[in-house]
Simulated assay, not measured.
Amino acid sequence: MSHPIEIQTVIKASPERIWKALTDKTEMKAWYFDIQDFEPIIGTVFDFYEPGDHKKYHHIGEVLEVIPEKKLSYTWTYPDFSTAKSTVTWEINALENGDTSVKVTHTNTEEFSELGENFSRKSFAEGWSGILNQSLKPFLEK
């Protein structure tokens, strides 16, 4: 049984601005990952490494769902270590006060648990919390 990781925050930015940060390669590089072949088009396959010179974790994803300014979903895999596949979904919801709620959900992370502590539920939850609250939010609210 899958236990999705869900991390949510409120950002003082419009859904349009958040969407651009989630889908524009130049903006993504500033707060997320350098993903040169990413396009917010269903079926697009992209790959990237985590930052740093060591190129430790190679990721490959495929865009599954695109609802502009509302939802973006893609697969998340580590082809050098496993054939397992998980899914990352970003949801954007405008709030009445002008702020925007952003939620990231990562499902099927338990598929990677045999790969060790760096692939544990705790590690994924901490990683997504950092990406959302220490990277995306400050990038958009600066």
Rank of each mutant, 00 (worst) to 15 (best):
K142W: 05
L95R: 10
F81V: 06
K71Y: 07
A13T: 02
N93G: 10
I35F: 06
D53K: 12
S129L: 12
L115M: 15
D99Q: 12
G127C: 11
S101W: 12
V66K: 04
D37Y: 10
Q134F: 06
E96D: 13
P15S: 07
F81P: 10
E62P: 03
V66N: 04
Y78H: 12
T9M: 07
D47S: 15
D47H: 13
L136Y: 12
S120Y: 00
I60Y: 03
N118P: 08
K29M: 02
K20H: 15
T100L: 07
T9P: 11
E111Q: 14
E39S: 10
F48I: 01
T107V: 05
P15Y: 09
P138K: 13
F119E: 06
L64M: 09
R17T: 15
I67M: 10
F48N: 02
E62I: 08
L22M: 07
W76P: 02
H54V: 08
E16F: 12
E111M: 11
T89L: 00
P51H: 01
G127L: 14
T77E: 12
I67P: 08
S86N: 14
Q134M: 10
D37A: 07
T109D: 11
W31T: 05
G116C: 09
K122T: 15
M1F: 04
Q36H: 13
L115S: 08
T9C: 08
H106K: 05
I11E: 09
K103R: 07
E110S: 09
T75D: 03
V104K: 01
M1R: 05
P4T: 02
N93T: 12
I60T: 10
E39Q: 13
Y78I: 03
I41R: 13
E6M: 14
S123R: 11
T77R: 15
I5K: 11
K12A: 15
I92F: 08
N133Q: 09
P15C: 04
I41A: 10
F124H: 06
L140R: 03
S123K: 11
I41V: 15
T109G: 05
S14M: 09
E27I: 03
I41W: 01
